[in-house]
Amino acid sequence: MRIVRGAVAGTLESSDVLVRVEPCDHCLEIVIESPVRRQFYEDIKKVVDLTLADFSVTKGRICLNDRGALDCVIAARLETAILRGGERQ
Rank of each mutant, 00 (worst) to 15 (best):
E33C: 04
A69K: 09
C24Q: 14
G10Y: 11
L12N: 11
Q39N: 09
S14N: 14
E29F: 02
A75P: 05
P23Q: 08
N65C: 03
E42W: 06
C27E: 14
V8N: 09
A53M: 11
E29Y: 09
I74Q: 04
S14T: 15
Y41T: 12
V19G: 03
T51E: 12
D49G: 08
C24W: 04
E13M: 08
R67C: 05
D49L: 08
P23I: 03
V47C: 14
L18F: 15
D16C: 12
I30Q: 03
T80E: 15
A69G: 05
D43L: 13
K46A: 13
L64T: 03
R67D: 02
K45G: 00
L64C: 04
G60S: 07
K59N: 06
R77P: 04
H26L: 05
A53L: 07
I62V: 15
L64G: 02
K59Q: 07
L50W: 06
I62Q: 00
L12A: 12
D25L: 09
C27R: 14
P23H: 10
I32M: 07
G60A: 04
L52C: 07
K45N: 10
R67P: 00
S56A: 12
R67L: 00
I82Y: 02
D66A: 03
A76Y: 11
R20A: 07
K59H: 12
V8G: 02
L83A: 03
E79M: 08
A76H: 09
R38E: 15
D16M: 11
A69P: 03
I74M: 11
T11G: 12
L52H: 12
V19D: 06
I44N: 09
D54A: 15
T11N: 13
A69C: 07
D43G: 05
F55V: 08
A81V: 09
R37M: 06
D54G: 01
E79V: 01
R38S: 14
I44P: 06
F55D: 02
S14R: 15
N65K: 14
A75Y: 07
T51L: 04
G68D: 08
R37L: 15
L18G: 00
D16P: 08
I32P: 05
T80Y: 01
V48A: 10
S34I: 03
T51C: 06
C63W: 08
A9M: 11
D66F: 04
L64W: 01
L70S: 10
K46C: 05
P23K: 08
R67K: 14
V31Y: 11
G10I: 13
D16V: 14
G68L: 07
C72Q: 10
D25N: 04
D54S: 13
A76C: 10
G10M: 13
L64D: 02
